[in-house]
Structures are given as structure tokens and as C-alpha cells.
Design a protein around this nucleic acid. Sequence first.
DNA 1: TTGAAAGCGCTAACAC
DNA 2: GTGTTAGCGCTTTCAA
Lengths: 366, 366
Amino acid sequence: MPRPPLLSDVAAAAHVSITTASRALDPNSDHPVKPRTRERVQAAAARLAYHPNPMARALRARRSPTIAVVVHDVSDPYFAEIVRGATHEASTHGFLTIVCNSDRDPATELRYVQMLCLNRVGGVLFAGGGLEEPAYRRELRGYTQSIGEYGGAIVALAPRAESWAAEIPDNRGGARMVTEHLLSLGHRSIAMIGGPPFVRTSRERELGYLAAMEAAGAAPWVTTADFSRSGGADAMSRVLARRERRITAVFVATDSMALGALSELRRRGVHVPDDLSVAGFDDIPGLDFVDPSLTTVRVPMAEIGAAGVSRLFGLFDGKPGRPRIRVHPVDLVVRDSTSAPRPTRAVRLRLTSSPASALTTTRHRR
Amino acid sequence: MPRPPLLSDVAAAAHVSITTASRALDPNSDHPVKPRTRERVQAAAARLAYHPNPMARALRARRSPTIAVVVHDVSDPYFAEIVRGATHEASTHGFLTIVCNSDRDPATELRYVQMLCLNRVGGVLFAGGGLEEPAYRRELRGYTQSIGEYGGAIVALAPRAESWAAEIPDNRGGARMVTEHLLSLGHRSIAMIGGPPFVRTSRERELGYLAAMEAAGAAPWVTTADFSRSGGADAMSRVLARRERRITAVFVATDSMALGALSELRRRGVHVPDDLSVAGFDDIPGLDFVDPSLTTVRVPMAEIGAAGVSRLFGLFDGKPGRPRIRVHPVDLVVRDSTSAPRPTRAVRLRLTSSPASALTTTRHRR
DNA sequence: TTGAAAGCGCTAACAC
DNA sequence: GTGTTAGCGCTTTCAA
């Protein structure tokens, strides 16, 4: 196989100059080209199987046909799903997707963003939350600013302090919804295992929980953990250790932590949902296969990844899109890990007085 | 912030030509440069925070400082781990990593590889197995060949028909090991749920199982499924439906399928490991948190991803590395899903009595 | 030891 | 409508 065909080959084959060939092949060009000439060029290009060299283009356009996704951890199903959605969408635009795994380390993330900036990627998706730390934010700002200067776009897929365009799940609404589900089953004593307090997603989910609890006149109780399975397990121990009041249900801020929590409960012989109801958040793949299958809030992760990419392309074309922050609706998915609390006297009273037809209202959208 | 500094800025600041500046800054250049000049240039570069433009370099070098990983599905923990290992290693070399998600669709994979080829990526890691289909192989060969022609490297991370350099897990040895573990516990009637027969990884794992069974004089029995959880669940039904001979243990070719199999057993009230021992393969993250925790074969997925990238860099430097196929050792990880077989009677009772009562307990299956 | 000049493959002023 | 020319930012002949 000889060297790949160049634009000059096409031009020669069609008996036109390189410029004309370029124009005839560029669909976005508004420069006039005689229809017959265009045809000839296109035919030649097709015959030679010509494909423009993206690097030469990129050098000239000062921007490469790639987008990047910055995640905390690709092995986390939440981020993996986002990456899947994003790569798919990007490929439909003829863009390649670079994945940067920060390992939750600010320095690593910063190094990546610098490389992205140097490489003039078309756009960057920040899939996870950012630190509030001033030094980090300042340096990040420097890079993202220069990305903006050469025409690159930035979109956040989680709530952040930076005022970027964003495509985020309805964390607060979802948390309220799942808490209300628990309340409607008759639970009053509902604890929450939240994510790290300095992450905005954690805060939003906590706010939803608090709002629902307050509206119901129930007393909230929150403990936090990192987003890991083992963190969830440890937090669950803390919930169980609490003696002031018997907890009958726990809302866990992410499915990963909920999985850890479930395993801890199993270890201790606490039956779910009979002894304790547990609900998660995200609906990562495979929850149908755990025992008991986990009630959770479905976040359209892949769709959010794809929407982020679409947003990026919108920004290229100069349309910022409003609102700046687009919130994606989430669904409550009721499975087997939640049920009415075990009939202690007080609880039974409530159940009989209020028609708790919870299961019929399970899949409302917001 | 003004425009990023160019090599010409550095040259001007150091009072040398851009040629000299380029040479002074290039560590691989063997062209002589007076030490004092070099120092001056380096100082200027540091002062201006100069970073060479990768796109300009790439255009000239006809190769970009990126590698790509082609996976079947990033959401599959197996591939996600490989991606994690690969991106990490690539970043230590200053390379960015492109992720291509084929969705197990040959046409999609082919489109991606073409884009990679056009974009002159430095190297490509094929993380999954390939099809045997001639048309697919021919077209793929065309692309990979031209990748080779411009100096790009290719490495496989799973056994393939193509004669590329490869870094693969010891599928056969691992399968033998886990089957021997089952045999040593006293099992004789061990079924296997294999992967798709046209995937080499499946075949290798099956070969390991068969070898162990044969060596023990035990009769093998294999059924296959795609690599999904639901496929594993269905296959487990088939195992249980088998009546010719009582199965006491099942080796499942991947953890994902094993997870599906476990959920099916739970649904039917078959206790693991008392009624049936189950072992998987891969050791994807989170297996400690399922119930019962799964005995499996640990594949160093992230290490294989990283080794693939190292291999790529070795190939750049012209050292093919031998052997062409490097096999990574795997470990048996014994957890709670395997134990000695129960006395005959009890098992038969459970197995025959369970299926009917099972269906009532399922709710949300997809 | 240094520098001038010619590209890498493409796009876009600016003529004609 | 078409072509000529000048770069995008860098590396590498070739000459001095």
C-alpha cells in the first residue's frame, strides 16, 4: 500500500488547484465553486479514498478534532458510563475521545488539563466535582482560560464552583424523591450516608434528603463517607452503632457506597429490607443482580455524557445554550431493598392511617 | 494571558536561531550545541514557560503523541481496569490516551481504527478479542498495516489471530488452577459456563478447564454464554436443568457472568457454596462485597494495560521484545463461594425442589 | 557550532 | 470561479 493520498493528489486528478480542491471538499465553505468542478473533485476524492490529514488541519485550525473527559476513576461504573456515552456521541461527530483519570488527585488532574490545553483539544468534559481549594482552582482556571482563548469549550457534568456550562443530574430532586419514597412506606427514622462534604454533588443530595425530612417533620441524621464501597460499609457500621433512636431506613448517596453498606449488613445478619430498608443513588449497572436488588435513583449517566459532548459542539458554534446549567431528570427505581418498616406499634399506626400506596407512584419523573 | 510562547520567542530571548533553540531543547538530538548556548536557551525556555506545540510536532513527525485503547465496553469492569492502567502508564510518558468503545460491533471498531490511523496515533492497544470473520480481518489488516507504515505500533491484550505483540493473562493456566481447586475440594462433577466460543479467551479458559478435568479423569460439561451478567444467569439455568448427572460445582469463565449466575441461584433458592460451589475468573473490583464473596482467578488487568503501553513504547524504539506474546501470571483467590461438596442426598433434594417457588420473588428484571 | 531555508498537509487571504 | 501565495509551529537537511 502506497502513501495515503494527499489533497494535492486529488487536485491533480481533478485538474484543479489545491485550493479549489479544498473548497470543493469543504461542506462548510461558502466560497463559490462551479457545480461541475465540485463534482469532478468529489469524484476524484472518492476514487482515491482521500481523507484529509487531521493533524495538518489541526495545526492550521489551532484546535484538534478531539474532546477529553476528565474523570476521577474510570473503574467507577458511574464514570465509566459517562465515558461510554461521551465517546459514542463524539464519534458521531468524527471526534476521538481522550480519557484522563485523575485518581482523585488534584495534581494529576492539573497535569492532564495542561496537556489537554497544549494539545489544543476541542473541548473538555469535567465529569466529577472539583476541589474548593484556592490554589487548585487558580491553576485550573489558568488552563481552562487558555483553552477558551484558542476556541476550546468546557462543560461540567457535576455541580462545580466554576461558572461553566453544565449538564448535571437532578441530585436534589432525586434525593428528595427517594426520601419521600421511604417516608411514604411509613419510615420516620431515616438516616443518610452522604458523600464527602466538600463535593457539591454530596451537598445537593443531602439537601434533597433534608428537604424531604423537614417537610415530613422527621428528624434527619447524616453521616458521610468517601464514595467507595468500603467507605459505605464503615458508615453503615456507624449508623448501626447509633443508639439514640432506632433507624429503620437508610438513604445512601451513591450505589457504590450502598453496595458496601449492604455487605456490612449481611455480615452482621441484619436483614434488608425486613430489618432495615436501604436505598441508593445512580443506578449503576448490575443492581438487579445483587441481593436484595437495590432501590435507587436512576441517573442517566450515558445520556449526560452524550449531552455534555453535544453541548461542547454547541459552544463551538457559538451558541452557549441556556440555561447555562441544564438539569437532567432522574427516576426512582423501586426494587427489593426497601419496604415498609417492621411493624413496631408506632409505625403500624401511621401505616394504617395513611394510604401508603407507594408502589403505584414509583416511577414519576421530574 | 497572551498567546502561548513559541519556539521563536525562546530563540529570540536567547539570541539564537530557532534551529539552534530547537536543537538545544531536544534531548534526543545528537547535533552538537555549545554548552553555554544550550544553557541560555534552556533558561529562556524555562522563563517563558515554553512548551512545544504537539500538533506542529505531530505534523512533522507524522505521528501524534497519543495512544489508543480499543475496548468492547468501557463499562465492563474488566476493560475499565485495563483503561485505567493504560492511561496511567501513557501519562508517565507524556502521552494522552484515546478510548474507543466498539460496543462489540465490528463495523464500529473498524470505523474507530480508521480514525486512529488517520489521526496517526502513536500506538493502538486492542484490549478485547477479535472476530475470525474474513472480511473484518482483511479490513482491519489494511488499517493496522498503514499504522505500521507510518511508524505506529500495535499491541494486543487478548489472544488474537493476528500476529501482533501481545500482553495477555494466563487464561489457560488460571482455568486449570481454579478447576484443580474445585477438584481438590472433592468435586468431580464440575460444569463450566464458558464465554462465546469464537472468542479466543473463551477457548483458552475452556482448554484449561478441560485439561484439569481430563487429568483428574472427570467428565467435563460445558455450556456457553456471552460475557454478560444476564447471559451468565441464563447459562446457570441450563446447568441446573441438566439432569444426566448432578453438578456440584460450576466454573464460570468471567466474574460478570458468575455474578449473573449467583443471582440466578439465589432466585431459585440454591445455596452457594453448600448446594453448589461457584468460581469465576478475572477478579473484577467489588467481589468482596457480593454474597457469598466470589472465589476467582485474579487477572492483573491494570498491569496488563500498563504493560501494553510499555510494550508500545518498546516497539517505537525498535525493540520488538520477545517473546512476542508475553503471558502474565494469574492468581487463585479463594473466597466463600467454593467449598467441599455436600453429601449427595441433600443436594439432589434442593435442586429438584427449587425452581417452582423461585419466580415469585423476582420483581424488577431487565 | 550555527543558521537559512525547505517543508509536514492543509486553509484562507488576496489577487485575477 | 479559480489560482497564487503565505503561513499554522516545528524539525531537519544543507550550507557556512
